[in-house]
Simulated assay, not measured.
Amino acid sequence: MDWLQRTAKLRQWTRSGTRAPHKPLLLLYALGRFQEDADGALRYSAVEQDLLRLLTEYGPPNKTTPAYPFHHLVSDGVWEVYTDRGPGSPGSGVGDLRATGATGRLAPELRAALRREPVLLGRIARLLLDLHFPPSLHSELCEAVGLELEPTETEQVSAVRRQRDRRMRELVLTAYEYRCAFCGYDGRIGAVPVGLEAAHVRWWAFDGPDDVENGLCLCSLHHKLFDKGVLGVGDGHRILVSQRFVGHSAAAREHVIALADRPLIGPQPGARPVSAAHRDWHTRQVFHGVARPATAV
């Protein structure tokens, strides 16, 4: 059985690039727990808050429940659920899962395959990360679910991936004249830019193209906050800062909160700005909460 192909084809509700990472997050969490205890199982009532935190932190801004993937992942052949009454999920209702002592774990065939071929776990995890999340979030997401991946497990699974355009970084950084579009940071070591990255506005994992109209030159801090939904780009190419972000230090106020409603820096004349379609996708699928008003100077 090709577990990578099965992982790549998880059934998800999709429409117009809508993010639905419920099943991938549960599967990543289950892989992390398997790595810790290959014989263990996940009682819904015991892991519900962990799963809810993952969905809140790494899912889209709309409300959701971990009961949905806990029940529906069974249909993909990688997960099983049993209750105090026997095998089979009682349904996707939170009350049903709690009341029946619903417990889930990786499907028996998958557990056997992971025992036979230990490197398979890392390949499945990397595939889930590549298909559903931007690279800036991979390390912290692994930490959040308790996954430890070997360096050799970071290689791409080319059979299920389209190829990235390696020219994008240079094109985007050139368009923004090697300055962060949010704060203007332009650090270099000699002639080499340091701490500057080409960020996809519409994530590459969700068909975001490798071109300037879908890119921003951002410093490492603002790239991470952009992918986490703390920052966004609104109408008129003005910076959005989520009201959900809390920071009381002078640094947090200066480097994040004070950005609210500022115009982007760049791109240079003649370069294409971020397209409205990609900005709209990011606002709907990644940006969390309501945008702060401009801060008083």
Rank of each mutant, 00 (worst) to 15 (best):
S89D: 07
C217P: 05
G266N: 04
A99L: 10
T65A: 12
G101Q: 11
H288N: 11
E254V: 04
A205T: 09
V274T: 14
H223I: 01
P267F: 05
Q156D: 14
T154V: 11
L31G: 05
L54Q: 03
E109A: 15
S139F: 05
I189V: 13
H222A: 01
D76R: 08
Y185N: 11
V256E: 03
T18I: 07
T83H: 06
D207L: 13
A276C: 01
D211T: 11
R98E: 05
W79V: 02
W281K: 01
H282K: 08
S242R: 04
V78A: 02
A276L: 14
F206A: 03
G289E: 09
V119F: 08
D37Y: 04
H255E: 13
Y44M: 04
W204P: 01
V230P: 00
T7H: 07
A144W: 02
N62C: 09
R188P: 00
V256W: 02
R284L: 05
R98Q: 13
A20M: 13
R292P: 04
R166F: 07
R188I: 00
G236H: 12
R202L: 02
R115F: 02
H223Q: 13
V94W: 06
A181V: 03
A113M: 05
D280K: 13
L106W: 00
F182A: 12
P151V: 08
E254Q: 14
G208W: 04
G187I: 01
R115K: 15
S158M: 10
D227V: 06
R238D: 03
H237N: 14
A198R: 02
G229D: 04
G195T: 06
D165I: 03
L147Y: 02
A251N: 12
P135I: 01
S139K: 10
R105M: 10
